[in-house]
Amino acid sequence: MTDGDLLLNPHDRALGRAAVASGRLLNDLGGAHLEAAGNLVEKAARALETGDEAKAERYLERACAYPYDERELLHHGPWAAHMFLHDEVTDAFVHSHVDDEEWLDVALEQAATGSGLGREHLADILHELSAQARFYELTPRESRRIRKALGKRSMSPDFRLAADASIAEQVAVARELIETALRFHRALHH
């Protein structure tokens, strides 16, 4: 057996089965935390839509109470809020007709006039769509409009949160991203 064989089959390494099982457990746990945080973010968004600030705050505090994921390097609550915004934008795109760019008009306006992390994350999401235009099936015109409006951007959203960020800091970020998603939705469905 060569060193290459050991790399290809971790079960053959000393403690290989334990390492594989441990990795699967960490994947399952991180996935469960993210799924739960996503559920709580959706409930917080519904509470914000109905004006129930206290309920939204409670949901967000719970979503942000999960421990920092050292493996994925993320806070579950803010990441779930980013994905809530991402899903809002991509769902609008997917449900639009090929020649209907209203979703993009609204998204670019929000990215130009918004502020803070919400604006930055929205711009990052649009950049991701443009950078992966073939996967998302953006028209060349849509992709050009995004690149012209936003220029080059990172595809890794910056949450501006340290690994030891407090729940309150995480809640503020998550709330801003949710509110950005809700503003986008309202503007699109005026």
Rank of each mutant, 00 (worst) to 15 (best):
A165D: 06
G116R: 04
Y66C: 02
E72Y: 14
F84I: 03
R147H: 05
A111D: 10
S115R: 09
H76Q: 12
E61S: 09
H97R: 13
E102K: 05
R186Q: 10
L104E: 03
L161C: 12
E128M: 11
V94M: 05
A65R: 15
P67E: 07
E88A: 14
Q170Y: 05
A174T: 01
I146P: 01
M83G: 00
P157A: 12
R141H: 15
L73F: 13
A56K: 00
T139S: 05
Q170D: 05
A65P: 04
R134W: 06
A165G: 06
D91M: 10
L161S: 11
L177E: 08
R144S: 06
R183M: 08
R153G: 09
C64N: 09
R144E: 09
Y66E: 11
A168L: 04
D69W: 02
R186L: 14
A111I: 06
G77Q: 05
R145A: 04
T90D: 10
Q110K: 08
R71F: 12
R145Y: 08
E102R: 11
G116H: 03
L161Q: 10
L108W: 03
L150G: 08
L177T: 02
G116A: 08
D164N: 15
A133F: 08
E109P: 00
H185K: 14
G51F: 12
H97G: 12
S154A: 04
P157W: 14
S154Y: 12
I167V: 13
G114D: 13
E137S: 04
R175D: 14
D100C: 01
W103N: 13
R147E: 09
D164A: 12
R119C: 02
I125S: 01
W103H: 01
R134G: 01
H95P: 05
I125R: 07
K152G: 08
S154L: 02
K55Q: 12
H121Y: 02
E179P: 05
D124P: 02
W103C: 00
E101R: 06
R141L: 12
L74Y: 03
S96L: 04
H95M: 02
A174D: 01
F84H: 11
A133V: 06
D87V: 11
T50Y: 01
A162Y: 09
E49R: 05
S130I: 03
R141W: 09
R141G: 09
E176L: 01
Q170A: 05
D100P: 03
D105E: 14
V171T: 08
A63P: 03
F84V: 02
V173G: 15
L161D: 13
K55S: 03
E137Q: 12
L126T: 00
K55V: 12
S143K: 01
R175T: 12
